[in-house]
């Protein structure tokens, strides 16, 4: 990269923005890919692209959603068509070592790991990234109703795996 002194101010501004959001962008990418290495790569590439396009970002308030969309696109571009068949439950132990003192936490992480992509992603977007139902719908190009259904089913699935609220969980998958 041929950085110029005049870029320095914008670069610092960008780095400040990214420094705050990077941990959750990584976590979002992790739950997209279920691989720490892939997540790291995707975020790195996404931030490189984001920096190149940074001049086009007009509203700072939109930065988070903008970066999330770039991470999502990069994941799709780099991995969906060339995805290696390496993600399985055996990978779980390596990717997420047991947190130690909290068996529920490990159990829940394993359950999230096993969720279908279409359930796992909206959950991560809502809980991690703070996206609204509408924002998730726009990003995933599905209807808001579908987002709500997926979120509801994802939670039910996870609660069932945790053995919680058994009486309340209805079989609404049909």
């Amino acid at each position: 990269m041929s950085a110029k002194i005049s870029d320095l101010g914008r670069r610092r501004e960008f780095d400040d923005l990214v420094r705050e959001l990077r941990p959750d962008l990584y976590r979002y990418a992790f739950w997209l890919s279920r691989s720490s290495q892939v997540a790291d790569d995707v975020v790195q590439e996404a931030l490189l692209r984001a920096w190149k396009a940074y001049g086009g970002l007009r509203e700072a308030s939109a930065a988070k959603q903008w970066l999330v969309s770039i991470v999502r696109r990069e994941h799709a571009r780099l991995y969906e068509r060339k995805r290696l068949e390496t993600v399985d439950l055996a990978a779980f132990e390596e990717e997420l070592p047991a947190p130690g003192t909290d068996p529920d936490l490990e159990k829940l992480r394993r359950a999230i790991f096993e969720l279908e992509d279409s359930y796992r992603e909206p959950l991560a977007l809502q809980v991690l990234m703070g996206h609204t139902t509408r924002e998730i719908a726009e990003l995933m190009d599905i209807k808001e109703g579908a987002v709500l259904t997926r979120l509801h089913r994802a939670r039910n699935r996870l609660k069932a795996d945790l053995g919680r609220d058994k009486d309340e969980i209805r079989d609404d998958e049909s």
Binding site: R27, L108, L128, R155, R164
Partner: peptide, 18 residues
């Protein structure tokens, strides 16, 4: 309408924060 169980939600958030 997605979080009627605050205890579960807190655990969920911790779980997602790998």
């Amino acid at each position: 309408g997605d979080a009627a169980d605050p205890e579960f939600e807190a655990l969920l958030e911790r779980a997602l924060r790998v």
